[in-house]
Computed example of a mutant assay.
Amino acid sequence: MDSNEVRRQWADRSGEYSPEYYAYYGPDETSETIRAIFEDHLDRDARVLELGCSSGRHLAHLAEHGFENLAGIEINAEAFETMDDTYPDLAADGTFYCDAIEDVITEFPDDRFDAVFSVETLQHIHPDADWVFAELARITADLLVTVENEGDEGDEADVNYVHDDFPLYYRDWNRVFTDRGFEQIDANPGERDTVRAFRAPDTPTDT
């Protein structure tokens, strides 16, 4: 399976793990974790981008707690119809890009966003598109947060097919972004995902 096929799968996704699926469950513990990290490190007017925002449950949670400059990238067009119905204020006030991450991210200027985050999205980037991670580092002015499945210790395979369907690529996200000059400032392994927060190079430390 190449990177084009991976993108096609997510663009056409319905049922489990679709935008409707996530809208049904709404904001969750992960939403709260992201909000807590942002509240510790960002002002409410920070420019925030979510990668693979789906119908917007995490962004909606941020909006409910005062974050006002929100954006998202999502490849599945039906996500925005669901967002209109489920989170109409977010749909009206946010900035959204209906396209693949690979096809949008190069258009942003350096340091375009104060914070960039992903929840179980970067783990689906095909190895052919590893160049995306350098682009993420380029557009992030302050804080980068990953909530991704990194596999279990001792896993021999770099890829796992969920339900024999779509691929999940295991990566060491600490290495991925510290190799690009970021400093890891927090890491919390969970039952399935590991939450990591990185500070961009030359970002002033909190006082």
Rank of each mutant, 00 (worst) to 15 (best):
F38M: 13
D103W: 00
T30V: 13
D110R: 13
N4L: 13
A11R: 14
T178L: 04
T178P: 02
L59G: 01
E153F: 10
A115V: 11
E102K: 12
A187P: 00
Y170L: 14
T106S: 11
N188V: 14
D12H: 11
F177E: 01
A46C: 12
L42Q: 12
E191V: 06
A23I: 07
A71K: 01
I105L: 09
N149D: 15
P204A: 01
H61T: 00
L90A: 07
G56I: 04
T205V: 01
D84C: 00
N69F: 03
D172F: 09
S118P: 01
D12C: 09
D85L: 04
Y24V: 12
G15V: 07
H58E: 07
H163C: 00
R138G: 13
G190C: 03
F80Y: 08
D28I: 08
Y21K: 04
A157R: 13
E74S: 04
H61N: 10
T203H: 01
F133Q: 08
A197I: 02
V176T: 11
T207M: 02
A92P: 07
T194L: 02
D206F: 03
V104N: 03
A141Y: 07
P19K: 11
I73S: 02
S18I: 12
D103A: 09
T205H: 08
I101Y: 09
G94N: 08
D43I: 11
